[in-house]
Structure formats: structure tokens, C-alpha cells
Amino acid sequence: MANGLRGLPDSFLRVLVVFLVLIVAVIVIGGALPTEFKDHSRHVQATIAREAALPIRFAGSTECGTCHDEARLKQIGYHRNLSCETCHGAAKAHTENPVEVKPAAPRKRESCATCHHFDPSRPTGFAQINPVMHFPRQACISCHDPHQAQPPSVPEECSACHAEIARTKAVSPHALLECTECHTVPAEHKVAPRITRASIPTERGFCGKCHDKDTATLQPPKIDINTHGEKYLCWQCHYPHMPEVR
């Protein structure tokens, strides 16, 4: 048995043979496997193709205008930037079979409240209502046309959009002040609120009209408008919708 090759002991050769057999087996099996099992880039291409072919459920905003005039009508109101499918839900199936598949037409108050119920975390300037207080149990669409969304009359109440400020102010010493006391609101603001903004007081004397120690009004607190707060405008320290001093 011992074929003392190059003086190596028989035991070493036996182990060597076992290892060689194993290595050859791995190489042979590895080589015999079809390339599609081993080729990473083929797997990648196949996955990309599979992902790209997944079914589409939301048709996209441009699709609706091809048949529906409302899609163009909508461009007047505040909802002009909304996709139809934001409210009506996924409509790809509808575009493929317009007769049999109809997208949802939400008429319940809850579906409008999804965006428009009051939530203090929402950015100010976004139209919000308290669903309990705001014409309860009446369908929103009986007053509002969602395709030309705007309040029935231009809001007298700033609170329609600035609900958080209104609620804060309502419990503050400034509760009785009208918004317009401090802010001038150009008419444009009601149409394009983010483009034309309401004004804010730009000089210290404005607050001083009530809070300067020399004024005759009763409103406390009184300060010396000339020295108090140095170069800052009043509202740069005090939040006027909820003055810290109570």
C-alpha cells in the first residue's frame, strides 16, 4: 500500500487523497451547476425585471383628465394640487375597465376629516375643523364641493386655517383681541395663503400702545417701552398668542 512518495508517510498521503477527492468534488459540483444558479448579475437582472413588472394600482394624476372634466374643474380650488386618487383611491383598475370598476366616491364626513380634523401637530395655515363642533352630522359635500374646494364664504374666521393659534389665543389674555388688531391680511392671502402672507407688527411702539407705562389703558403688564427688551421686537421674546404673563 505504502507508495512512500517523496518520503512522505503513508498516513499523510491518505489524508491528502481524501482532501483532494473533496476539493475535486466541490469543484466538479460547482462547475456542473448551471450558470443561472451562480451568476449574481443574472439574479439581479431577474429581480429588476420582476419588480418592474409588479402590478400598478394607482393610475396617476394625469390619467383622469383624459375622460373627466372634473379633473380640469378641480384646478380652480384649493384641491387643485391633489391627485384624484388621494380621495378616490387606487383607480388603475377603473382606467382599464371604466364601466365595471368604479372608484370610491367618499361621501362620509370621516374621509374629509382624515385631512381636515383639527390636530395641533398639523402645520398652521392648513384648513382644519373640529368635526364635533363643525355642523355635526351634515355631509361635508352638502356645503363644500371637493372639486372646487373653498369655504362657502371666504373665512371671516382666521381659525378655519389657523386653528391651533385660535385655540391658544382663546385661553390667553389676548382672547378678546381680533386677529386683525395686529395683522393686516391682504385679500390675496385667502386665495394663495402661502404666497401672500399676513403682516406682523414691525415696531415696538405697536405693543407699546397698550403696554407702555405711560399709556392710559388698563391692560397690564406695563413696561418702559424705551428700555425694556433693548433692540428686540416684543414678539421676538413674548409669544403674543399666549403671553407668558398671566
Binding site: M1, A2, P9, D10, S11, R14, V15, V18
Partner: peptide
């Protein structure tokens, strides 16, 4: 033992 049978001192 992989059928090895070598118990020589060298092995």
C-alpha cells in the same frame, strides 16, 4: 483510520 496500517516509529 482510512485503512492505514502503518505503526512504524517514523509514522
Amino acid at each position: 483510520a482510512l485503512f492505514s496500517n502503518d505503526l512504524s516509529e517514523r509514522a
